[in-house]
């Protein structure tokens, strides 16, 4: 994370790379393992090895007192993690809620590809982008269903006026 001395713009700096990785990880964590596998099957996956064998574990989920105060321990959640290294050296990390260790491995593989100058364009276009569309569509569907249950007190006021 050391600051770069070259005149890189913010869009290619280390912070933006990390933001891109986080954004990709978020989309992948929200996606079903079968959907990720299906899209990965359609691209040429580079040679890689497991740096950390996929494994299951727990994280303690923390909330905040009053929603915005000091943290407290709410309860645990199952989580899976993995790490892979491409033959070209990039190391990717995969973390996801749940016990699907292979999903964590696929996320790690995608994270490694996102970091590769040669592969990031393809993985972004052919894996992350379609998954993002699906995740956003699901989110929008839920938001629209929820919005229909919003109480509209103003309607009554207009009716009387």
């Amino acid at each position: 994370m050391s600051s770069t001395t070259s005149s890189t713009t913010s869009s290619t700096g280390p912070d933006s790379k990390q933001a891109q990785r986080k954004a990709a990880m978020a989309v992948l964590a929200h996606s079903a393992a079968a959907d990720i596998a299906g899209l990965l099957a359609a691209i040429a996956v580079p040679a890689h090895e497991n740096l950390r064998e996929p494994e299951n574990g727990l994280v303690m989920v923390r909330g905040r007192i009053g929603g915005d105060g000091a943290p407290f321990n709410l309860g645990e959640a199952t989580v899976s993690r993995a790490a892979v290294r491409l033959a070209t050296g990039e190391v990717g990390f995969g973390y996801t809620l749940g016990r699907d260790a292979q999903k964590a491995r696929m996320i790690a593989l995608c994270d490694a590809m996102v970091q590769s100058a040669a592969l990031s364009g393809e993985v972004e276009a052919k894996v992350i982008a379609p998954l993002r569309v699906a995740v956003n569509a699901e989110r929008a569907r839920k938001a629209a269903e929820t919005a229909a249950t919003r109480v509209d007190f103003y309607t009554m006021v207009r009716g009387e006026g």
Partner: peptide, 8 residues
């Protein structure tokens, strides 16, 4: 246990 999450 891998650790604790960031507070939600």
């Amino acid at each position: 246990r891998f650790g604790a999450t960031e507070p939600v």
